[in-house]
Design a protein around this nucleic acid. Structure first.
Lengths: 153, 153
DNA sequence: ATATATTAAGACCTTTTTATCTTTTATACT
DNA sequence: AGTATAAAAGATAAAAAGGTCTTAATATAT
């Protein structure tokens, strides 16, 4: 029940696109990767996959770049996670047991389960747009400048 | 906010020791590793570290093995996690931001935070003994047979 | 004392994840 | 058409996590 670095980058930069891009204002990988602290070739790879998964959109060439369409904006955070990590990973038992449910629970099942349901619900129900709006309506700026980069410290 | 495979193995087998071992009934790595599906050399390494961290105890030689003392039994699950993964990893922001708190929250901060506190509280407050008792009082057997082993499937 | 069972320690290997680099393809503008 | 710009694709590299093996140390029982 945790995200890979890749998924984190993907969620953050998709929210960034929601806030800053449009069909007439496309943003290049470098522009995102420079304004934040994510390695741009890695982000480029991720973006390719997100495009294939129809989470974000792209056009090549001059004035090209990445952006969100209206359809893209209706996707949920869970779709990003699914696209990058797959759902199995985030759904799996907290202690890694293969068979873990109410009738055959792991030692922490009843502690973890409500938590998981709740958070997954929100990741499923809120659209990218809603998330992005919530962020800006709270007066927060979505800079991703301070992503933890364990090695470089 | 997620555990390494190592931590999962450690939690499960410590609970196993709580249920099956005592100062006069020591259990070898192989006995645990065979009765469950965890690779024994890897578990052996983990156990060494848990012993150094005073989470579990060991004696060498014939009839030796691993077991829990009364002191060991008062440790909490969080101590196991801390010993193996460190607390930073489990405490870090869900989206990986370096600075993420109430006044400077990540996009999912207010969704994730309450649950994290709740779950961490339980991992901090319940002793190993309490966890183990809860398991057996519910008539459940703690076999770890079905740990997910992604590659081998 | 010696043999034996068992953990301890350290070196090593494999897989997965993260990151980079290079070449190709598509688009827009002139 | 030609050129510049940006993504797409694929090959490669580095780091981290997961796992194995060998040898040493230590406790027990005979």
């Amino acid at each position: 029940m945790m995200l890979s670095r890749a998924s984190k980058y993907a969620i953050l930069s998709t929210l960034f696109l929601a806030e800053h891009s449009s069909e007439t204002r496309k943003i290049s990988v470098k522009e995102i990767a420079n304004s934040i602290d994510v390695p741009s070739p890695f982000l480029a790879k991720l973006f390719q996959q997100l495009v294939r998964g129809k989470i974000i959109s792209s056009t090549k060439g001059p004035n090209g770049g990445f952006y969100l369409t209206k359809r893209n904006r209706k996707k949920a955070v869970i779709d990003i996670i699914e696209n990058i990590d797959g759902l199995e990973k985030i759904n799996e038992c907290f202690l890694g047991l293969n068979e873990c449910d109410g009738s055959n629970p792991c030692p922490v099942h009843f502690i973890v389960e409500p938590f998981k349901n709740n958070i997954m619900g929100k990741f499923r129900d809120k659209t990218i747009t809603e998330f992005a709006e919530e962020i800006s309506s709270n007066g927060r700026v979505l800079t991703l400048k301070d992503l933890t980069t364990p090695k470089k410290q």
